[in-house]
Design a protein around this nucleic acid. Structure first.
Lengths: 218, 218
DNA sequence: ACAGTATTCAATTGATTACTTGAATATTAC
DNA sequence: GTAATATTCAAGTAATCAATTGAATACTGT
C-alpha cells in the first residue's frame, strides 16, 4: 500500500474513532440512551444519571465535539438532543450485540429484571395483535416529556411516578400493558408491580418506542 | 432512583461500555473492518494495516476480551474472526453515521476517492438491473480469500494485485464493474484505473458484499 | 444593579491506554 | 533436539481520560 493510501486510511479510521471514543464511556452511553427518548436539559440528565452537574456537562461537551449531540438554549436551559437518528439505532445495536456476546449482560438482565417480574413480558407481535382487537389498555410510564416526543400509537401517558394518583383513571375492563424506555429500564417493571398490588391485571413489554419504530434487522 | 437500581444501571452501562471502549481505537476499527471481509491471521492483518506484529496482537487481545472476535489455531497460525454478525452491521452504521455527521469524513471521501475516479460509481440498484439483463461483467478485486468467504453472486474473483496478469481473461464485450471492500477501500478505484489504461470499459460500485447482504435500514 | 439559577470552564489528580522493545511461548519441519 | 516461524506477553514511557473542585459565565426576574 503506498504511503498516501496508508495516511488516508489512518485519517478516515481516525475520524470513525471519534465516534468510538465518544461511546467508550458508560456515562456517555447512558446520556445518549436518555436523549434517544427525547431532548433534555442538563438538570434532567443529572437527576436521571445521579452524576454531578459538572460531570454531565463535561460529557456533553465530549459528545458535542464528536457531533453526536447538539443543543439549543432556552433561557438559562441548554436543551440537548441527538444530532442524527442513526445514533438511536447504533445504541440499540450495541445493546443487542452486548446481549448476544457478553454473558455479564445476560446475567445482569436475569438477576434484576426477571427476579422482580417473574411473568414473561408480552412480545411486540402479541401486543400488536391484541391492540388490533382492542383487547389491551396500553400505558407509557416514562416521563410525560418523553411521551410527547414520541410514543407507541394508542398508548396513554401515565408516568410511573404519578401512577399511584391515577389508578382510578385506568380502564380495568381490559388487561393493562405497560412500556417504558426499553430492555434496560425499570419503569415498566415497577408499574406492573404497583398495578398488581392494586389488583389490576397488568403485564408489560420489553421494548420501547425505539424498537416499535425500528425496522426489523435480521 | 433507589441505590439498587442505580448500581444495576452502572453495571449494565459498564458492560455496554466494554464494546464502546473496544471501538474507541482507530486501529481496532480498521482491524474489525478487515475481519468483516473474512477471517485472517495476524500476519495478514499486519500487512494490511502496516502496524507492528506486537501492536496488532495487543489490539486483538483487547478485542478478544470485549468478545468481539474469536480465534482458532491452525498450526502456528492464529486465525481471527468476528464473533457475531452484528459487528459488521455495527461497523457499517458507524461509518454511515460518520459520513452523516462528520464533515471531515466527507472531506476525506471527496479529496481522495473522487479525485482519482471522476466518474460516478454505479448504484447497487443499477448494478442489479444490469446484472439481471446480463449486461455487465462483475469482478471482485479483493484478495481471493475474502472472495471465498463471501461475494456478490455472479462476480468473478480477480484480485487487484493480480489484475495485470489476468487482463486477457476478461470478457470485454460487456462493461466491467469492479467492487471491493466498500466505501473506504481503494482496490476498486485502482482496478478501474488500470482497466481503463488498457482500453477496457470499466466502472465500479461504492458498496461491497456487506452492503449487498445488508437489509436496507431507513 | 443585583441575586438566583443553570451551565460551562479550568486545573488537578489518579487511572487508563497505545505503542515500542525485548523476551517468552507455541508449533512445525527436519 | 534444534532452528525457524508465528504469536503472545511484560515492562516502560508518554499521552489521554474521568471525576472533582472551585471559579467563571450566561440568563432571568426583580
Amino acid at each position: 500500500m503506498d504511503s498516501d493510501t496508508r495516511a488516508w486510511k489512518d485519517a478516515i479510521y481516525g475520524q470513525f474513532g471519534r465516534i468510538g471514543k465518544a461511546l467508550s464511556s458508560p456515562r456517555r452511553l447512558e446520556i445518549l440512551d436518555l436523549l434517544s427518548q427525547g431532548p433534555k436539559n442538563v438538570e434532567t440528565l443529572v437527576l436521571e444519571t445521579e452524576m454531578s452537574v459538572a460531570n454531565v456537562s463535561q460529557h456533553l461537551q465530549t459528545l458535542l465535539q464528536a457531533r453526536l449531540v447538539q443543543f439549543e438554549k432556552q433561557g438559562t436551559y441548554a436543551v440537548y438532543q441527538l444530532s442524527n437518528a442513526k445514533i438511536s439505532a447504533l445504541l440499540l445495536l450495541i445493546q443487542e450485540l452486548g446481549e448476544d456476546i457478553l454473558a455479564e449482560v445476560r446475567l445482569l438482565r436475569d438477576e434484576f429484571l426477571l427476579n422482580r417480574d417473574s411473568f414473561e413480558p408480552l412480545t411486540l407481535d402479541e401486543l400488536k395483535a391484541r391492540m388490533d382487537m382492542d383487547e389491551v389498555y396500553l400505558i407509557d410510564v416514562r416521563p410525560k416529556e418523553e411521551f410527547e416526543y414520541g410514543h407507541i400509537p394508542g398508548a396513554f401517558s401515565i408516568p410511573v411516578k404519578e401512577l399511584a394518583d391515577h389508578l382510578s383513571s385506568i380502564d380495568t375492563n381490559r388487561p393493562v400493558v405497560a412500556y417504558c424506555r426499553g430492555r434496560y429500564c425499570m419503569y415498566a417493571v415497577e408499574a406492573v408491580e404497583m398495578l398488581r398490588e392494586h389488583g389490576i391485571h397488568a403485564i408489560r413489554i420489553d421494548e420501547g418506542v425505539r424498537e416499535w419504530n425500528q425496522e426489523p434487522i435480521h
